[in-house]
Structure formats: C-alpha cells, structure tokens
C-alpha cells in the first residue's frame, strides 16, 4: 500500500472515530438547573450549545411545557454576563391554539422580556430555517422553536442541522413541541412535561408557583428519570417543591449509565434504535 493511500485511510479512520466516539470527547459547558437529583442525572446540568426537546403531549399541557422551556432558556441565558438575547420562533396559529407567550407572564417568572425577540413564522419550513439562522449567530444565547402538532419537516436531518448549528455557535436550541408525539431526533435530552399540583398548603397561603412533572425520556449521555420540579421565580432556579410528598412518580432509572469508551453505531442509527 502506498504512503498516500495509508495517509488517506488513516485520516478517514480518524474522521469516523471522531464521529462515533463523540461521547468520549463530549464535554460541553453545562448549567445547573438547581434541582439536585436532576443535575446529578444530567452530570452537572443542561448542556449548552446543544439541542433539547420538550414535549407537551396534549394541547392543554402546553402552558406547563412553555414554562419549563422558559425556565431552561432562562438558565441557559444566565450563564454569561451581559445576558444574551433569546429568540423565540413560533408559528402564527399557535397564538390561537394555546395563546401567545405573554411578556408579563415571563417577567412574573423572573425572566427579562427586554432580551426577547419573537419571530412569527408562517409555517414549519420557514420556522426551521429561521431557527438555523438564529443558531448560527454568536450573539444569541438561546433559541426556542415552538412547533404545534406533528411536523414531518422536523426529521432527523433537520434536527441534525440544528444540533450542528448549536454546537458551532454555542447557542442552546430548545424545541418546544406541543400536541406531538416524540420522534427520533438528535436531541441531547428529551423531556415530557406535564403540570403538577401545587403543593398542599393552607388555602390562604400563596400557591400557584409553576410546578412541573418533568420526565426525562432520553438523555444521550446518561440515564433518564422523572422528577417533580418547581420553578422558583425569585431565584430563577428549578428546585424541589417544599412539602411535596416525593417521589410522586417512581423515578425509573432503568437505563444504566452508558460506558462512554465503547464504540457505537452511527449517530442516526443509535438514536433511532433507542427510540424503538
């Protein structure tokens, strides 16, 4: 074998290794959510510069999922001073389906509406393209892509594009899927969020802080779990709700922590396999 061919082969092998053994070299910046158990499962918190999916399985859970996404975006944007702007991309008609994201509501959650740019896309295609554009911009802290219903366009290729753009720029991509079933994707984590009861308390005490039943159904680099989380508006942190009978839902840690050194199949195959 000639030297040139050996070189080519070696470089190709290197490429394949880099693609496959992504987990080994994978050490993204992370931001702690504030919920101790969830942070431990996520190995330190939410990975920045990656794509995360949040699902509301039914349309009426959309507000809970929105609150969870807003919390994640708030945590992601708070990593750097001055705070980076947040780009929120949504389709026109979601305003009718589940209401528009209200700025007073965001500021009640402790987030800053000054840093929000909203894009009202006409359809999924233009929303996806806008999201890819926004993710390519270094100045953006996080991008929220809000999609209603099952969207054929949000396939593996599209999510791979978003993931790569997020990795390149360091902006975090949060995909909020309402009234949709999870599909295979290249997301770093995937959550199914439902509203949870406010903790039992005296009727005259202040109730109504956002409480989520957050189920982590997919985690590319660690186990999954399910937790009841409360968003603490004053500290801008997630946390365990006070006086809540934990755990309400059994935390199924049925997936063992995966050994990172093991050679795995390609990215696409792996995610598809896991879903199946």
């Amino acid at each position: 074998m000639t030297g040139a061919r050996t070189n080519t082969l070696a470089s190709l092998r290197g490429n394949i290794e880099r693609i496959e053994a992504h987990g080994e070299a994978y050490s993204p910046r992370r931001v702690a959510l504030g919920h101790a158990d969830a942070d431990a499962t996520l190995q330190g918190g939410l990975a920045l510069g990656a794509m995360h999916e949040v699902f509301a399985e039914a349309g009426r859970q959309s507000a809970a999922a929105t609150g969870f996404v807003a919390g994640l975006a708030g945590r992601a944007a708070a990593t750097k001073l001055p705070h980076r702007p947040l780009v929120w991309i949504r389709q026109d008609f979601t305003e009718i389906e589940s209401g528009a994201v209200s700025m007073s509501g965001l500021s009640e959650l402790g987030l800053d509406p000054c840093l929000l740019v909203t894009v009202r896309a006409a359809d999924v295609d233009s929303a996806l393209r806008t999201a890819a554009d926004a993710l390519a911009c270094d100045a953006v802290g996080a991008v929220v892509l809000e999609v209603w219903g099952g969207a054929r366009q949000l396939d593996l290729v599209a999510s791979r594009k978003l993931t790569l753009a997020a990795q390149a720029s360091g902006a975090t991509c949060l995909v909020l899927r309402m009234a949709a079933e999870p599909q295979p994707s290249t997301a770093e984590t995937r959550w199914i969020v439902r509203a949870a009861h406010s903790p039992p308390a005296a009727p005259w005490s202040a109730w109504g802080a956002p409480v989520f039943d957050a189920q982590l159904v997919r985690n590319r680099h660690g186990p999954v779990g399910r937790w009841i989380m409360e968003w603490k508006c004053d500290e801008c942190l997630f946390g365990k709700p006070a006086a809540y009978p934990q755990p309400v839902a059994a935390a199924p840690a049925h997936r063992p922590h995966q050994a990172p050194a093991r050679a795995r199949g390609s990215v696409f195959k792996r995610s598809g396999h896991r879903f199946a």
Binding site: A100, S104, E108, C114
Partner: peptide, 27 residues
Amino acid sequence: HLAAAAHAVWPARAEGEPPLRPLRLFE
C-alpha cells in the same frame, strides 16, 4: 425598535408571590 426594547422598563414582580399573570395569554 430594538434599542427601545433593550432599555424598556418592565414592572417588577412582587417578591415571594407566585406568578400573578399567565404565561400564555389568549389574544
């Protein structure tokens, strides 16, 4: 209005209170 929005003053939330305004509002 990018510059105007960046310097807008939003009403502060009441400390210790749960959110008093909804996150999603129907027009």
